[in-house]
Design a protein around this nucleic acid. Structure first.
Lengths: 205, 205, 205, 205
DNA sequence: CATGAATGAGAGTTCATTCAT
DNA sequence: AATGAATGAACTCTCATTCAT
């Protein structure tokens, strides 16, 4: 009981800090956010912060990122065993769309992330983990399609996977930073098409 | 005479500052570089910096970027009037290769740029100018190829151009930040191929 | 029973704290030792420390000093009733040697003490108690020798005692702080000789 | 002219800081003195301190010590070429008296020094420099007297010199810390006597 | 008696920037 | 034009200490 009371108080404080941090980060951006400000927003003593997040600013930010991360991971985990080009197109298009859509859903947090990635190695790593997860997935998918003789064998899957992912990622950042003017579904369609069939006409196009 | 002497001294000082800044930026990275340190390296009084670069750190950095920028612009300026798919492939492949190669050539400065882009709106703009220049170019190229019936008309050039450019850009950053392990020419080949003809087999592949 | 159990737990905790404190003090020195660190080392809650040592750092240190103190006191307690100069020399020489040797024996704790004496009035007092005990003893000894007409009556015992003790003390600190390069027994011999017979020759030397 | 104006302002600020520091040190003691407080006392911006004393508290204290040091050094520099025991006594007695008297003269600053010596290696060194200077001097003096057959050859000058100096030093600290109750001139007389001729009677005493 | 979460004072630093010379 | 002394805002981080459980 005793322990539970304390633990609960502690968790509540941590929660308050996370909530405050989220607010401050979104309002001020990654760089202008200070621990001082978070504490003030949380109405909490200066030292308390370091009890919960001894590593400082980046640590609390990664906590905030966990939700977002989860969803990215679940997208990367989707199975892929196409039996035809049409089927492959649908699945890939869906994946791409889903991926890019997360930009809209988590715009605010991703904006912070974007700002912090250039600075914090912790954040950099976290994001690279996501990207690598996707690359692994896509490489596997390409190999599968190559085995099924759906995809060209002369293409290096390591490169091809990155073409899809890196394009997607960049579109995602464009959306996050409010630079994008193109409809998301058009991006997804075109990206999937070019990735799969190319921009130039074949003999039958 | 007197005025000329002053002018010359002024130019010399500016030159010293630029040289010092380059050294400090490369040694310390964008974020750890301070005006204090630049002044120290340049052996110049604290106040002098602000005479030449009243906007501070970012301003001097953009000066340093000018050379690099020039070369990117000159790559983007290359003409493109293909009369066949083979010809188009060669030209595009060459462009892509050239673009990515700049990563190696200007690695150090680009590293600073990369770090700063997330923070400095000045740098962000500069980089976006480059990207937009490329996008304009590529969009034009696509339209030309579509007019020539070399490229598929149902593809949105605004999207397609970005697929090529954004992939290329991301590969560029991978190289700059020493993350890339793939041979540059293989990247160029595969990227050009997928962009033009797609990953999946057509009826004749 | 219940009360006894509590008492025992309390004693055990105190013991743990003392052990931890000793370790931390010796490892970190007086100034860098923090209550936080002691608690961590003792695996004990933050508040517990203050139950046992409400005065803080210095209080626990004086506890740690008790053993050392005891031995100093026992040296100071040795009887002195010489009947000849030769006899006096042997006894004094032995005392001096013993005193200085404690430097080696309790080097680590004395080092802490030395660091703390300038700051903590508690420690200062403790050390002065030791010194005063010695001075009292030596003054008595001198008076005895003066009564026996072994020592010169024109010498002020209060000063003379301090010459012996203060020299010895300083040699002790030299040893504790690893500054001393002279053999201990040579120090004892010379100190005793000069103290008793002086550096300059008499008519018969 | 221009430079002179600036230099003068700078020197004035430094002077203000030193004056303020002296006041704060004496009022608060070594440990309770903070840079913040010195700045406040000097009515000077926070950053200014670090322009003049980048190493912090200890650096400014050593500046304050320089006057005191000078005088100690000049005492240690006095020549010593006695031709008789009487002459030697007078000179040594004078030295000892002078040395101990400095305790009274610079009581306040020495008090700070005393507190800081246990902590700051900078101060420790400074003080040891003084002591070593004295030891070197006294060792030379003893050797000279041994050569003149005034002093006993079996005594190790390294030890004997320390007996005199360490006793003197400890008396000095006693005075500085207001522990001493004995008249200074009596201390000097007795210390010189015991050091030279010993406490115990010779055949002719 | 023991705990450990919370506190908040406050020390030290660093820097961009100003401005009199 | 160049200087560099002075500024002071701000931030991080640590610790001893309290007190509800």
């Amino acid at each position: 009981m005793k322990i539970d009371g304390r633990l609960q108080r502690s968790l509540k404080t941590k929660e308050k800090l996370l909530k405050a941090a989220e607010k401050v980060f979104i309002e001020q951006g990654y760089h202008n956010t200070t621990i001082k400000e978070i504490n003030k927003e949380a109405n909490i003593g200066h030292g308390t912060f370091y009890i919960h997040f001894p590593e400082g600013k980046d640590e609390i930010l990664t906590y905030l990122m966990n939700n977002v991360m989860e969803e990215f991971y679940s997208v990367a985990d989707i199975e892929f065993t196409p039996n035809s080009k049409e089927n492959a197109f649908d699945v890939i298009r869906e994946q791409v769309f889903h991926f890019i859509s997360l930009a809209e859903k988590y715009k605010k947090m991703l904006m912070i992330f974007y700002e912090g990635i250039g600075v914090s190695s912790l954040l950099k790593e976290k994001w690279e983990d996501i990207l690598n997860k996707f690359i692994d997935r896509i490489v596997k998918d390409i190999r599968y399609s190559q085995d099924q003789s759906l995809a060209k064998k002369q293409i290096n899957p390591e490169v091809a996977s990155r073409i899809l992912l890196y394009s997607g990622e960049r579109f995602l950042w464009e959306i996050v930073t409010n630079k994008n003017k193109l409809p998301i579904s058009e991006i997804a369609d075109n990206l999937t098409h070019v990735y799969m069939f190319g921009l130039y006409k074949g003999p039958n196009d």
